[in-house]
Simulated assay, not measured.
Amino acid sequence: MSSILGIDPGCSGALVMITARGTYIDHMDMPTIKVGTKSRVNGAAISAWLKKFHISHAYLEQVGAMPGQGTASMFTFGHAAGVAEGILQGLNIPYTLVTPQAWKKSAGLIGSDKDAARSRAIQLYPELRALDAKAKGQALADALLIARHGAGVNR
């Protein structure tokens, strides 16, 4: 079965797999490893997980610097997104970078607060208990809505 991958990048992000119709398949909290005192994305764990699926297309949130974010945290966030993009390229998975504005608009979340994505995902996937966790549930919700945006099923 062909699947769609949605990625909310960053060390506290998530990856989610859905069908082209938006049916949930599986997800993974962004795996990390410690490098000195810093957390880094574990690319080997991501790659091993992705190889279990036949992925027709991936949608990766396009990241940029955020106002008020420190230099070190911006670097870590950008590094994590770069690792995810590099893995997609290395595994020959076709992908599209999606701006937060684009996927939030297709999910009807423009002008909403941060937790609105988690609330919307809970409405769409009420059986998915992982969404109940505040922080990890937020990352999963973002990844789900990114994937649904890519699949064209957010409406």
Results as ranks from 00 to 15, higher is better:
1 M>E: 05
1 M>R: 03
2 S>M: 14
3 S>Y: 14
3 S>P: 01
3 S>F: 13
3 S>R: 08
5 L>N: 01
9 P>H: 13
10 G>K: 11
13 G>Y: 15
15 L>A: 05
15 L>G: 00
16 V>E: 00
18 I>K: 04
18 I>L: 03
18 I>P: 01
22 G>T: 08
25 I>Y: 10
28 M>F: 15
29 D>N: 09
29 D>Q: 10
29 D>L: 13
30 M>D: 03
30 M>N: 02
31 P>V: 04
31 P>G: 02
36 G>T: 12
37 T>G: 12
37 T>F: 15
38 K>P: 05
43 G>S: 07
44 A>K: 14
45 A>L: 14
45 A>H: 12
49 W>E: 02
50 L>F: 14
54 H>A: 04
54 H>L: 11
57 H>G: 00
57 H>A: 00
58 A>D: 09
60 L>G: 00
64 G>E: 10
65 A>L: 09
65 A>D: 08
65 A>R: 12
68 G>D: 14
69 Q>S: 04
70 G>R: 10
76 T>F: 15
77 F>N: 03
79 H>L: 12
79 H>Y: 15
84 A>I: 13
86 G>R: 14
90 G>L: 15
90 G>T: 14
90 G>R: 11
90 G>W: 15
91 L>P: 06
92 N>M: 09
93 I>D: 05
94 P>T: 06
95 Y>R: 00
96 T>N: 03
98 V>T: 08
100 P>N: 03
100 P>T: 04
102 A>V: 10
102 A>R: 13
105 K>I: 01
105 K>W: 15
106 S>G: 02
107 A>P: 04
109 L>P: 00
111 G>F: 14
112 S>G: 03
113 D>A: 06
113 D>G: 08
115 D>T: 09
116 A>I: 11
116 A>C: 05
118 R>D: 01
119 S>K: 13
120 R>M: 07
122 I>N: 00
122 I>R: 07
123 Q>W: 11
125 Y>Q: 00
126 P>R: 03
132 D>R: 11
135 A>R: 10
138 Q>V: 05
142 D>G: 01
145 L>V: 06
146 I>F: 10
147 A>V: 00
147 A>E: 07
148 R>I: 06
148 R>H: 07
149 H>S: 03
149 H>V: 02
149 H>E: 00
149 H>P: 02
150 G>H: 14
152 G>N: 09
